[in-house]
């Protein structure tokens, strides 16, 4: 492990060899393999990062792995932030769910599934949350269009 392992996470860092710690613009960031994410998040929670803040997905289209799930957690005392990044391949967008570790991840994982199509294994209710249930497609993926309609101006149509 490098010297950028945040204080308090030494135990977790040594238990998970694949964890790569770094500091990005002042944030503590760790990249972890998707197979180990549930165990790692449990270790992080036990290390004091009790407050779950955020989980979101990002589509990097031309990068491999294509998707990335970013999990933000906070330790309330002392005040520390941690961001956990999990890379997910585009042809097999599956990752274990952390809703067993942080119950608050439930809705966030549903949102990532709804908008990106990333499946969370072990999630109790992986259904669409923001879009109507019968919607097809995953709009926030980079290969989905914005869905704008052409805006017509009346003057342009005066001839017709």
């Amino acid at each position: 492990m490098s010297r950028s392992v945040p204080a308090g996470l030494e135990v977790a860092a040594s238990a998970f060899d694949g964890a790569r710690f770094e500091e990005v613009h002042g944030d503590a960031v760790v990249r972890i393999d998707r197979a180990e994410v549930t165990g790692f998040m449990a270790a992080v929670r036990d290390a004091g990062y009790e407050m779950f803040i955020d989980l979101c997905a990002v589509d990097y289209l031309s990068r491999d792995p294509r998707f990335e799930v970013a999990i933000n957690v906070v330790s309330v005392s002392p005040n520390r932030r941690l961001r956990v990044l999990v890379g997910i391949p585009g042809d097999d967008p599956v990752v274990p769910s952390i809703s067993g570790v942080y119950p608050g991840a439930n809705f966030y994982e549903r949102e990532a599934f709804d908008l990106f199509g990333v499946r969370f294994q072990g999630h109790p209710d992986l259904t669409r949350i923001l879009l109507p249930d019968e919607w097809e497609g995953y709009p926030l993926r980079k290969d989905s269009p914005v869905g704008s309609v052409p805006v017509q101006f009346k003057e342009a149509n005066k001839a017709t």
């Binding site: 269009p145 704008s148 309609v149 805006v151």
Partner: peptide, 12 residues
Amino acid sequence: SGGMFNNYALVQ
């Protein structure tokens, strides 16, 4: 008219 949100989610 859909306002500034000319996208998939809103009725225009």
